Amino acid sequence: MTEKQPNKFKRIIKSFTLPKPWDSIVILLLNILILIPVFIILHQNLIDPEWPFHLDRILLFLAITAVMQLLFQLVKRFIFFVLILYLGVLIYGTLFQGYGFNAVYEDYRSMIYAMSENPNPQDVIVSKLLPFPNKNKILNSIEYDNPKVRNFALTATTKHFRDVKGFREYRQMIQCFAVFKEVQSRWNYVNDPKNREYIATATESLQHFSGDCEDHAILMASLIRSVGGTPRLIHTKAHIYPEMLIGTKADLENAVYLIKEVLFVKESKGKEIHYHIDERGNVWLNLDYTARYPGGPFMSEEILGALTLN
């Protein structure tokens, strides 16, 4: 009886063993499916040595492929069960908004797009900047907790990009981009009164969507902050404009993909993405009213100050 049980177990295992060449085909399929998320995780968390032509990432990709292939060859007899388990995980993620088939596809497209694109970073902003002009008055004008400001931001997020699928972890970024799109489509530049610096509050600017660059920056900072984003204002010799915290360079890759391939396709076609990197390595994206898409061209002036809303 004890001898028959192992034989029976072997027969069961053999019945689920894939015949050639299907075993090799399934191994290749699994290698591709599992390779993508593993590579993306490592790609986003390893330091980028900035080798030419992304040679470091190419070598990483080949190394992961070789390791995966070796592991699958070692469990070749159980490869059918491995395939069922992995597909089950992806199906569960797809049905319950976890990491599913669509997430694998979007991650892969974002990775390939980011490696082929060449965004246009500016000089790193050093910490030793000049005092920000009218700092206290500007801070008091950024009314991010005012119900009118909050309600307008919420309206913008329901009007634009609400039906974008996937990118769950970048939902807040997408909502901030929706706010930018709504304000950019309505803003009307009007000068301050002659010989006077007039600083409008966010709620004032919401009445007519008019004002100078300072008023626009205050309004954008208020709206971005009201939906959970982190804005800051950049001061140059004759201009003030808002920026939004994107995060790391890995987050920037996803932001570039979202802007150019999903959200602002026409506006950004053939254009570069402009951003700053601060002394801590954080990436800040330009949201100036002069740009038709997030990350549009800067006003080419030397940066004199930065005011961040934490």
Rank of each mutant, 00 (worst) to 15 (best):
D163L: 06
N118E: 12
F16W: 05
H239T: 07
T236N: 02
T157A: 05
Q69T: 13
I246M: 01
P119W: 03
E3C: 00
V190Y: 08
P242T: 14
R57I: 12
P6V: 14
I240D: 01
G88W: 03
C176E: 14
M299N: 11
N134S: 13
G166V: 00
S268T: 05
V26R: 01
H54W: 09
P52F: 13
I32C: 01
L263S: 05
I125Q: 06
Q122F: 03
I84T: 07
N282V: 04
K165A: 08
F264A: 05
F78T: 13
K8G: 00
T155F: 10
Y144Q: 11
Y293P: 04
E253C: 09
L87C: 13
R280T: 10
E261N: 13
D56S: 15
L95F: 06
T155D: 13
P193G: 10
G211M: 01
I41Q: 02
L258K: 12
S116Y: 11
R196K: 15
I27D: 06
Q184H: 12
E302L: 11
R168H: 14
M299T: 12
R292T: 07
K14P: 00
I84Y: 04
T65L: 14
Y289S: 14
Q175S: 14
I79D: 00
H208Y: 07
R196A: 14
G93R: 08
F101M: 01
V190I: 15
L285G: 06
L18M: 00
L60M: 08
I224G: 03
D145C: 11
I303T: 01
H274Y: 15
K237F: 05
D251S: 05
I259T: 10
T248F: 02
Y293I: 11
P133K: 08
M115A: 13
G270L: 04
F152N: 11
L287F: 11
F209M: 15
T158V: 11
V190C: 08
K271F: 04
P231F: 08
G166E: 00
A238K: 15
A250G: 05
Q97G: 00
G211A: 01
L285K: 12
E253D: 14
S110E: 09
F161M: 07
M299Q: 10
W187N: 03
Y99F: 02
K128M: 09
E197H: 13
W284T: 07
N140F: 05
I64V: 15
I34K: 00
R232V: 10
C176M: 14
L28F: 12
H274R: 09
D123R: 15
S116G: 11
D215T: 05
R109Y: 09
E243W: 02
F16R: 03
L70W: 15
Y144G: 09
N146M: 09
T158C: 08
N195Y: 14
M111R: 07
G295K: 12
N254Q: 12
I303Y: 03
N140C: 03
F96I: 11
P294M: 12
F72E: 03
D215S: 05
F167W: 13
I125Y: 01
K20Q: 08
G305V: 01
N102K: 14
E169N: 15
